[in-house]
Write a protein that binds this DNA or RNA. Structure first.
Length: 525
RNA sequence: GCCUCCGUAGCUCAGUUGGCAGAGCAACUGACUCUUAAUCAGUGGGUCGUAGGUUCAAGUCCUACCGGGGGUACCA
């Protein structure tokens, strides 16, 4: 809102004219008094305090602090020393003032750092009249360092009796209210730093996200997987059916795409002899926003030579359970009012069996008109133009999928749904893949990868023809990838795992925006 | 994109059938040397998202737009 506008300041000093930009910069308004010191504007008051500190020879923006203890460590020390009944320990801490309680000749401050809070107790006689008066002008939100002696107050709170302090950063804007915090979701997403400052839950969620990703890496590293990085800017956006973001590379004079999947590069690495590879990184898809979709999202993609779809199921099942045990210490999680148990083994069920379970054992023997009628009875808007496959899949997506709360591997999907996957040897109408559903959401797909370059080429061709002229991912065939395939790719299992959605499940978050630090928002006006 | 709900002080929220825009916290002035949502006395702070319209009169009713939540569509 207040753009840093040094040019505006220059204008002010050079011409003595206060332009619109100058007013924004200084926080002045038209109702300001003749000295340009508005009585009401908090930001202007604080700019004035900042100036007064400077004029008193006090730098309102300090620098490096040595010998710091975290507030948590300072507390521990105090508790330990109290138990040992020895001399009171000395400590230096630094952090942000979150609350201020002025008692006249003494003052309590709540100081917050990365690991917690600590109460500071400052007495006028201990720091001297001048410093004490200056401390009284400090605001909630200011960052300072303080040193002194740890002690326990009469009401039992571990505190620091301050002997000396120094301002490290003067805050110019008031923090959200101490009791309710920041609840406006829009502001929590746009100004995440305020959310992290005011809402402890936000910090917990993101710390857990970090722990989950660390645990995934550790699990895979221990099993001999190599973590690699493949291009995020690609001349062709392949590996998935999604609309890409398009950009332009000036040096090469050609269009580039943000990747929609790392798949085709990871498979090149299989050709190159890396037998177990994975990548955890962002994919970008030019799609709408929703509670479950962010246009850039984090994905684990993994390939293992000489494995297959079943190998991938065992791997992902064991991996997610291990991560849950590591991060939560349990395999049971709560999402909303639902209890989800991630302890293996997970249910494995054929797509067609799920459909028969819901629609009757004779579903696939019914005439198309009867199927459409049954679908309409379930309040699905299908009309005569729909193929039987499409009707069946609509039932799967709208009726069956939302009921798959406990972890479920859905296998043997119709081949038309997953055109690039390897077909099952005993039935070419279905493919050898799984889709893992948890809490009614697709969390992870897994495949027996196609490694026949001739078959792959013809599938790409079909996909291209089906895509038509839409600005979809595939506008030409990735010849370089097919060349790699023609050198020979080992048979392999592959899987993708949506990290954001996994984090949602393991933190109980209802919206993907609550597990992404800076979710995509429309630019504010 | 479509449907629907929401937008009032820095933050959290009231605001009646259309009739002078409010409270708590934060801020400012003062009191108080163990408080912790400190307390007590006083003070200031508003383009009611934006722009139109109806009306003697609009935070309130109508229209459009901007931003957000939820749903839906696109979506291996």
């Amino acid at each position: 809102m207040y753009s840093i506008c040094p040019r505006g300041m220059v204008h002010q000093s050079r011409r003595g004219v206060v332009s619109m930009a100058d007013k924004e910069w200084t926080g002045m308004t038209d109702s300001d008094g003749p000295q340009g010191v508005p009585a009401a504007d908090i930001r202007s008051q604080r700019l004035e305090k900042r100036e007064q500190l400077r004029q008193a020879g006090q730098c309102p923006y300090g620098f490096r602090v040595d010998g710091l203890l975290s507030t948590a460590r300072a507390r521990e020390m105090c508790a330990a020393e109290a138990a040992a009944d020895s001399a009171a320990p000395q400590a230096r801490v630094a952090g942000r003032i979150m609350a201020k309680r002025d008692m006249g000749k003494s003052l309590f401050l709540d100081l917050r750092d990365a690991e917690g809070r600590l109460q500071l107790y400052v007495q006028r006689q201990a720091v001297g009249d001048e410093d004490f008066a200056r401390l009284k002008t400090f605001d909630i939100g200011d960052i300072l360092t303080a040193a002194g002696t740890m002690f326990v107050t009469r009401t039992g709170e571990i505190s620091l009796r301050v002997a000396e302090f120094r301002l490290l950063s003067k805050s110019l804007r008031p923090l959200p209210e101490k009791w309710h915090g920041l609840t406006d979701v829009e502001q929590r997403y746009r100004q995440r730093y305020l959310d992290l400052l005011c809402n402890e839950d936000a910090g917990r969620v993101f710390r857990r996200r970090i722990a989950i990703i660390r645990a995934l890496r550790q699990y895979l590293d221990e099993r001999g997987f190599l973590e690699v990085e493949t291009p995020m800017m690609q001349p062709l956006a392949g590996g998935a059916a999604a609309r890409p973001f398009k950009t332009y590379y000036h040096a090469l004079g050609c269009p580039m795409y943000l990747r929609i999947a790392p798949e085709l590069y990871l498979k090149r690495l299989l050709v190159g002899g890396m037998e177990k590879v994975y990548e955890i990184n962002r994919n970008f898809r030019n799609e709408g926003l929703s509670r479950r979709h962010n246009p850039e999202f984090t994905m684990l993609e993994l390939y293992q030579a000489y494995s297959d779809c079943r190998g991938m199921m065992s791997l992902v099942e064991d991996m997610i359970a291990a991560v849950a045990r590591d991060v939560l210490g349990a395999t049971a999680v709560r999402v909303g009012d639902r209890e989800i148990d991630l302890a293996p083994p997970w249910r494995r069920v054929h797509y067609a069996d799920l459909v028969r379970e819901t629609m009757g054992a004779d579903w696939y023997d019914l005439a198309p008109e009867v199927q459409r009628l049954r679908a309409c009875e379930k309040d699905l808007g299908v009309d005569a133009g729909w193929t039987p496959e499409a009707v069946t899949h609509e039932i799967y997506e709208k009726i069956i999928e939302p009921t798959l709360i406990q972890p479920t591997f859905v296998t043997r999907l119709p081949a038309w749904l997953v055109p690039l996957a390897r077909r099952c040897d005993d039935d070419p109408s279905v493919v050898d893949v799984y889709e893992l559903e948890i809490n009614g959401q697709e969390i992870s797909p897994g495949y027996s990868e196609l490694n026949d370059p001739v078959e792959q080429r013809s599938r790409f061709g079909e996909q291209l023809a089906a895509a038509g002229n839409d600005d979809v991912a595939v506008d030409r065939i990735d010849e370089d990838f097919l060349t790699a395939m023609e050198y020979g790719m080992p048979p392999a299992g592959g899987l993708g795992l949506g990290i954001d959605r996994l984090v949602m499940i393991l933190t109980g978050a209802e919206s993907i925006r609550d597990v992404i630090l800076f979710p995509q928002m429309r630019p504010a006006t």
